[in-house]
Design a protein around this nucleic acid. Sequence first.
RNA 1: GCGCCCGUAGCUCAGCUGGAUAGAGCAACAGCCUUCUAAGCUGUGGGUCGCAGGUUCGAGUCCUGCCGGGCGCGCCA
Length: 545
Amino acid sequence: MSEALRTELTRVASRLGADGIEFVLERPRGAGHGDLATNLAMVLAQRERANPRHTAERVLQELQLAPDLVARTEIAGPGFINFWLAQDQLAAAHREILEAGAAYGRSVWGAGRKINIEFVSANPTGPLHVGHGRGAALGDAISSLLEWTGHAVTREFYINDAGVQIDRVAASLWARVRQEAGYPAEVPEGGYHGEYLRENARRVLAEQGPELAELPESEGLRRCRELALRIQREEQDRDLADFGVRFDVLSSEQAVYDGGKVERALGMLAERGLTYEAEGALWLRTTQFGDDRDRVLRKGDGSFTYLVPDIAYHIDKHERGFDQAIDVWGADHHGYIPRMKAVLAALGYPPDFFAVELVQLVRVVRGGDEVKMSKRSGEFVTLRDLVEEVGVDAARYFFLMRRGDSHLVFDVELAKKQTDENPVFYVQMAHARLSGIFRTAECEPAAISGSLDLAALPAPDDTELLKKLVLFPEEVEKAARQHDPHRITVYLHELATAVHGWYHRTRTVGEAPDVERARLLLARSARIVLANALTLLGISAPDRM
RNA sequence: GCGCCCGUAGCUCAGCUGGAUAGAGCAACAGCCUUCUAAGCUGUGGGUCGCAGGUUCGAGUCCUGCCGGGCGCGCCA
């Protein structure tokens, strides 16, 4: 909607001898400053050491604006030029909502870009916790945002099935199996002590028969490793599926080793002179790329550090043809970013190939009290427990309510409340109320179509709601650019406020026929936008509550 | 000690590429139901944007230093 105006302002700028000057055309924060405002006159004046308000007058003289585009202009403050858009613009924008329907808000600016987004990637060593849940919600929503803006997105999960941690789970499960069968055994140092491993031990004994516990240690460990991996993976998949998150590709660390990709990666690094031997280990010169120390690739015992398969894995992503690989990581891994960037820069990949989105910790509280842990895991609140208590919609909304890199306080009492204090409820209620209007009117939303007659909508609430609706595509694009779904929750809350206010102060059913029709059109479009925004975040849009 | 992130109303947080008088929600207080969900709406009070400098026509936003909090700095992942 602002494109035509921006083009015209650019033309005026070059006519006034400032070709290519940078200026801002934005939506002013407060009302009273129009629909759009530009600082063009101020930046021009600065350059010419002129009075900005005089320059603004010259700009206005040069501006040629179609009357169906801008209704009114003014010079304000230190030299801003404010624009009020013509009603035709709003009516046209409204038509787009109805025409696009469930696709309203989608765009094509990312067309052709292949993006891989890797998230959750939890070690298969235990149940998923709330931190993983936040990562899942965030990764999934960023994926959707990128899809909505035309990117080709692959959601990917990396299974760390090759490291030391798996050995520890295997040993811990083996110990529990032995204990369950009545033998003396201890969970080893550095092992996993959660209650879930006792449950799993009982389960595998029932499935595999008591002979399992009789096996020699090496064979028992081998079997427990397989069983633990399978059980944890199944459980993670189930937890994620129940949370509405599905992955396109599951990659395995073990497969990276098995496919010879690790050796290849080492070869690529050595070729570029980036590795050296010292103190019995193989090192990578990451300091050349801004890291604060070099990193070990191959340990003294001949095995590789986690960095090696990870590098190989990211090379693989590049070779699969992705233009960008986004990783969603827990904030405690932030120190790892310079290392990975260093490596990928050394390999000559474009600087924006690799991006990391950090997810901060989640503190779960109930009322005022911190919820410390789950009985089952013994260490943390599980995603499953949380979702069972508050539901998928509330969990997702709460996880997305804050920017990923800020700490999140998750109040389970609040998430369960059926009042407007609960933001999820408040937003979903707006959708349900709009649906209620159509029930009362006894017609399907889709049956109301055609152009919106703004003259039939006298209330300020009508216009305010409409203006909020047509911002949606822009919000999606901004959120996608910044990999920041939380912007959508902020927008949703503002939109819901506009809907509730409109609903409260205006009537639809039973008004004069032209007013009723116009309001039904407005209600239909508001319902579309609310549903689209909620769907984008993986949250349902209920018709009644 | 070094590095990264954060510090905005009593609480939880917005604040886009530096723009106009710093905004929401909750909590507090005061109102609003013969009307499509009062499961809602309206109003009031509440701020040294951690502190001190700097850059700029203009700083919550950029730079420097300090204070406070979180995380990281492993031949763990």
